[in-house]
Amino acid sequence: MSRSDWIRLRNGLLFISPWILGFVVLNLYPLLSSFAYSFTDYSVLSDPVYVGTDNYERLLKDGLFWQSLYNTFFFAAFSIPASLAVSLIFAVLLNFELPGRSIFRTIYFLPSLLPLVCLGVLWQWLLNGDIGLINAALDPFFDTFNRIFGTSVRPPNWLADPAFTKPALILTTVWTAGNAVVIFLAGLQDVPRSLYEAAEIDGANFFQKLLHVTLPMISPVIYFNGIMALIGSFQVFALPFIITGGSDGPGRSLMFTATYIYRRAFEYWDMGYACAIGLVLFLFVLVLTLLAHFISQRYTYYQGE
């Protein structure tokens, strides 16, 4: 390495030094501990006992683990694109220079600002199959449909029917995508006006400008929100826990891997096994994120590079 390489390395490491310290103390050390625990029988309260690869062998045969993994993948596959698309659309709408947009922005962000305990109770009602507001809104559409086709389909029992619990959860996830909207909004400010001017001179319409100017220019932010949605959806825990009142939902349809890890660790006194599951989940997410990272590298455009 040349001298300037060394200087850059030194400067780089100096700048990231707070992170290095945090990483070693708050990530690496706990991660290594839990790696060690995954080879033990450990109840948290008494000392761990080495059991070799027992926990990993158990995991292969554990139907609940695989069911939780299926639920998690299913949720991730639909919630990531849904929340990305919706939050991007909202951000674009909220970015138009219109009177009252500050108020609109604040309203759209409200669900992300309220204490979770309010939202949990409210959602249980909104999603109720019998008296919920969502089905009250859907009823006219179903009625019209039934009249035309002579059928008798009803809106779903969102939280009681195992087939509809996950769509219901995806709906609520989109609802609280306020953080992603804010990040998109901040990203939209970085798009130089000159590019829009140039595009307009070329006669570009709204969608052409969106596709050829906005999206490429905010691709670093799309990448950020995408990766965060990926990581977040694989650790989904609080929302389903609150909506189901702490249960796993009908037919265990809302039992996610993170929920299962929590139960194993703190309800079943099985921290060793929980660590094994946690590490396997970690590896799954890591591989997927790396994949997403390398694929998106091609489409992400950084002005500063």
């Binding site: 109770v121 249980q124 109720n128 199959g129 019998d130 008296i131 029992n157 009681a160 029917d161």
Partner: peptide, 9 residues
């Protein structure tokens, strides 16, 4: 199931 759905908190 429908009956249960109408139950409140």
């Amino acid at each position: 199931q429908q009956l249960r759905n109408s139950f409140g908190n």
